[in-house]
Simulated scan of single mutants.
Amino acid sequence: MIDTDNDAVGHAFYDYYKQGKASTLWCNIKGVGDDIVPIEYFFRSYTDMPEIEKTALSLCSGLILDVGAGSGCHTLALQD
């Protein structure tokens, strides 16, 4: 169960997945700076992923642990 009171990202994911509400996440990436990410980005399909992600996924084999899976878009692509 997502604790939406204390988890802004989890709350945004929940709203998008369950209610179709789109949000924008403001991310601060250490060494890179601020970035604005539409919530839909985290729910993209394999065909919508950049080539570098597709290449990384193609190198996976065997049992995979997707740590910090977020919305699980990479996990779903690996299941296929």
Rank of each mutant, 00 (worst) to 15 (best):
M1K: 07
T4C: 05
D5R: 13
D5A: 11
D5N: 13
N6S: 12
N6P: 01
N6D: 02
A8I: 10
G10A: 02
H11M: 07
H11P: 00
A12D: 01
F13A: 01
Y14F: 10
D15S: 12
D15W: 01
Y16P: 01
Y16A: 00
Y17P: 01
Y17M: 04
Y17N: 01
Y17F: 04
Q19L: 11
G20F: 03
K21R: 15
S23D: 11
S23T: 09
T24Q: 13
L25I: 05
L25C: 04
W26K: 14
W26I: 01
W26V: 03
C27Y: 03
N28E: 10
N28F: 13
G31K: 11
D35R: 15
D35H: 07
I36R: 15
I36D: 07
I39M: 06
E40Q: 13
E40P: 02
Y41C: 00
Y41V: 03
F42K: 02
F42M: 05
R44P: 01
S45P: 03
Y46C: 02
T47C: 01
D48E: 15
D48I: 00
M49P: 06
M49I: 00
E51N: 08
E53C: 08
T55Q: 15
T55A: 13
A56I: 09
S58A: 13
C60L: 11
S61N: 13
G62R: 11
L63E: 12
L63Y: 04
I64C: 12
I64Q: 09
L65K: 08
D66P: 10
V67N: 12
V67T: 03
V67G: 05
V67F: 14
V67M: 15
G68I: 06
A69P: 04
G70H: 09
G70E: 03
G72R: 06
G72A: 07
G72C: 09
C73I: 08
H74Y: 14
T75I: 08
T75F: 13
L76K: 14
A77I: 08
A77V: 04
L78R: 09
Q79F: 10
Q79K: 15
D80Y: 10
